[in-house]
Simulated assay, not measured.
Amino acid sequence: MNWQQHIIEDENILVGKPTIKGTRLSVEFLVGLLAQGWSEAQILENYPRLQKEHLQAMFLYVQDCFRDGLMYKRTNVD
């Protein structure tokens, strides 16, 4: 799967945050739901425009961000 077919970054949508194409749902928001304990089924039920492929694309996007060094553990600066 090519995540670029499902995730876009448009400055006119949520100030350019990566979002699911055709929605105003950001990757950050969806990852946050999963972090809060939501299941994929709950997300798909509550956001009917989403499909399982969108969530798979989101995971691939996050994986690429880690691979490219765009995500890292921040250290506290005192």
Rank of each mutant, 00 (worst) to 15 (best):
V31I: 07
I43H: 11
N76R: 08
C65I: 00
R74A: 15
S26A: 05
P18L: 04
H6E: 08
S26T: 01
T19M: 05
K21I: 05
G22P: 10
R74D: 13
V15L: 05
K73M: 13
K17V: 00
A57G: 13
E40Y: 05
T23C: 09
Y72A: 15
K17F: 00
R49A: 13
W3S: 09
A57W: 04
W3R: 08
G32A: 09
Y47F: 15
F59W: 01
H6Q: 14
G37A: 02
G16R: 01
V77S: 14
K21S: 13
L44A: 07
R74L: 13
A57E: 06
P48N: 05
L70W: 04
F59Q: 12
Q56L: 11
Q56Y: 03
I43A: 10
G22E: 03
A41T: 07
W38L: 09
H54Q: 08
V27H: 03
D10C: 06
T19W: 00
Q5Y: 05
L14T: 03
S39G: 09
E9M: 06
A41L: 10
Q42C: 08
G37R: 04
P48T: 06
A41S: 15
Y72M: 12
I13G: 06
A41Q: 15
V77M: 09
E53H: 03
T23Q: 11
P18V: 01
Q5R: 08
L70P: 07
M58R: 05
L70V: 01
I7N: 11
I13M: 01
V27P: 07
V31D: 08
I8A: 15
M71D: 04
Q63V: 02
E45H: 12
L34Y: 01
R67A: 13
L30D: 07
I43P: 14
I8N: 10
Q42R: 15
R24Q: 11
L50I: 02
T23L: 05
S26Y: 00
Q63F: 03
G22Q: 02
F66K: 09
I13C: 03
R49E: 15
V62Q: 02
Y47V: 08
E28M: 07
P48K: 05
R67Y: 03
E11C: 01
T75P: 10
V15Q: 07
G69I: 02
V27N: 05
K21W: 00
V62L: 07
L30C: 06
I8Y: 07
L70D: 14
Q63A: 09
E53Y: 00
N76F: 07
N46G: 13
H6D: 13
L14D: 08
E28S: 13
E45P: 08
H54R: 08
L50T: 04
Q5I: 03
E11D: 02
A35I: 03
W38G: 10
I13A: 02
Q42M: 13
M1E: 06
D78Q: 10
I43L: 08
M71Y: 08
